[in-house]
Amino acid sequence: MKGTIEYKLKSLAQEGKKAVAWLIDPDKTATDLSFLEHVKEVSRLGIDFIFIGGSLINSNETENIINIIKEIDTKIPLILFPGSVLQFSDLADGILFLSLISGRNPDLLIGQHVAIAPLLAKSNLEVLPTGYILVDGGLSTAVNYISQTIPIPNHKPEIAVATALAGSFLGLQYFYMDAGSGAKIPIPQEMINKVKKSINAPLIVGGGLKEVSNVKEAFKAGADVVVIGNGAEKNLSFLTEVLEYVNVLNLSLNIN
């Protein structure tokens, strides 16, 4: 049902609760027995969202992954995190309609959006207009190279704030701050905090979150949703540890 993901995201921001998204890159994910067990485990722990996508998608596994997950749990919102118009499937529940507002590549600001718009109009996907902000994570990542954009320096929170404000004035309803897959360092708390205070919208944060302490810091700074991708690929127990922490955190918020 359209509007479900929007309601969940905006409720998080309004109620102060926190959520976790598992980012699955179809090029790096083998749909074997271990993957089935991973999906069952994160479903049991109540994963909030699953993002599907990446900077490079050379395989045809996206729809296969969607079908596998839906066979296990139909309630987990499956959201496309597309790197290009080729990464589209109307089997998903929603799509992060990303505008790379921190860059100056017109193709990723509006160009590819025009190409995919007719497909989205015919689909049942929830379209989530999202300002995508790349931040330097201490390492050149695939998204930097593919997007041909320079990330915002991580010691310049004022640039991130101005960028987020511009996106807000343009009418974008969600914001995703990303240090990129495999980033050495996460986005600084000060930058997250200042961006969150400048916008009236749900804030998603990802990249460089390798330890639970990184996740705690991102939440404390103002993130509504954290995205675990590379860390889960290497060690799924890290994702389950994060989910257990968030479950306890949200329970404490209910009690208070």
Score class of each variant (00 low, 15 high):
residue 104 R to I: 04
residue 107 D to E: 13
residue 148 Q to H: 00
residue 204 I to W: 02
residue 173 Q to T: 09
residue 128 L to F: 09
residue 134 L to R: 03
residue 204 I to A: 04
residue 150 I to D: 00
residue 156 K to Y: 06
residue 112 Q to E: 14
residue 125 L to M: 13
residue 145 Y to I: 13
residue 120 L to F: 07
residue 147 S to W: 01
residue 144 N to T: 07
residue 117 A to I: 06
residue 150 I to K: 06
residue 182 G to Y: 07
residue 124 N to G: 13
residue 191 M to T: 15
residue 146 I to G: 02
residue 169 F to P: 00
residue 135 V to Q: 02
residue 208 G to R: 01
residue 111 G to N: 10
residue 165 L to C: 12
residue 137 G to P: 01
residue 133 I to W: 01
residue 106 P to E: 11
residue 191 M to W: 07
residue 165 L to V: 15
residue 128 L to N: 10
residue 168 S to W: 14
residue 112 Q to K: 12
residue 111 G to R: 09
residue 143 V to P: 10
residue 139 L to I: 09
residue 151 P to V: 01
residue 152 I to E: 00
residue 172 L to R: 03
residue 167 G to Y: 04
residue 171 G to Y: 12
residue 207 G to N: 05
residue 208 G to T: 04
residue 110 I to D: 03
residue 180 G to H: 01
residue 142 A to C: 06
residue 149 T to C: 10
residue 142 A to D: 11
residue 153 P to K: 08
residue 163 T to P: 10
residue 169 F to M: 11
residue 185 I to S: 12
residue 183 A to S: 06
residue 100 L to I: 12
residue 165 L to Q: 15
residue 197 K to R: 12
residue 148 Q to D: 06
residue 138 G to R: 03
residue 145 Y to Q: 12
residue 169 F to H: 12
residue 145 Y to V: 13
residue 184 K to H: 10
residue 141 T to S: 08
residue 181 S to R: 02
residue 171 G to F: 12
residue 164 A to R: 03
residue 173 Q to V: 04
residue 198 S to P: 08
residue 111 G to I: 09
residue 133 I to V: 13
residue 98 L to Q: 02
residue 114 V to P: 05
residue 163 T to V: 12
residue 171 G to E: 12
residue 178 D to Y: 07
residue 184 K to T: 08
residue 208 G to I: 01
residue 126 E to I: 13
residue 194 K to L: 13
residue 132 Y to A: 06
residue 97 F to A: 10
residue 115 A to R: 14
residue 169 F to Y: 13
residue 154 N to E: 02
residue 143 V to D: 08
residue 130 T to M: 14
residue 204 I to S: 01
residue 136 D to A: 05
residue 114 V to Y: 14
residue 201 A to G: 10
residue 127 V to Q: 11
residue 189 Q to R: 10
residue 207 G to T: 03
residue 137 G to Y: 04
